[in-house]
Amino acid sequence: MNIEDLLEQKALEDLNAAERAFVLEQMSLQEYEDARNAILNSQIFFEMEAAQIQPNPAIPNKALLALKAKKAAQEPKKKGAGIVALFAYKIPAWQAVAALLLVFFFVRGLGTVQQHQTIVVADESLRDTVFIKEYITQIKELPADTVIKVVYQDLKPKKKSAKKILASNKRAANPKTNVNVSPRAVVQEFDDVLQYCNRTSSTPVSKDTFFQLLSNEVLF
């Protein structure tokens, strides 16, 4: 219940006891009647006066023209709407700061990864510079008067390695300097040399091929 609606809707004589008591809390009965009369007369007068005033017919036309102009102005913008919208899009300041921080830490993280990669590359290059020497020890049974010559060879098993070994043997097996060499020992020596060559070479050769090569290099 409010006094404004009562004033508009109910005459003094139509008020029930509760409404009358409510009205009396706020104004006298005479004031109620005067206020109600003023409201009702004003409403009648407002309606009469409003009927005599009509909006200017040019107004909607002007507004519609403005609407059309606005639409026309928006049309060309649609071509570059994507980029324009991207730049025109607004975000709160805290979001911009958060995005900057994220980008900062992301880029920083990328730098860390690159550093790790550099270390790995350095490790690999160090490996390339390490050279390992391998010594191969062979025990052979030879006659007591055999002249022993120590030959150091690089471990680069190529096809030529067989030639080099043979060449060393050629120098070592000088018939003028070796005295009383038994044929059995010579055969054994050849077998040992062949076995050695096959073990060290990447391309093992048969006994026949070995003898062929030996004959080419030594005998003829």
Partner: peptide, 21 residues
């Protein structure tokens, strides 16, 4: 504001009755 407005107008327009129009 409405209460004040209606009271003031009521006083001012008291000579005019509801049957005016």
């Amino acid at each position: 504001r409405l209460s004040s407005a209606t009271k003031l107008l009521g006083k001012r327009l008291a000579p005019f009755k509801a049957s005016l129009f």
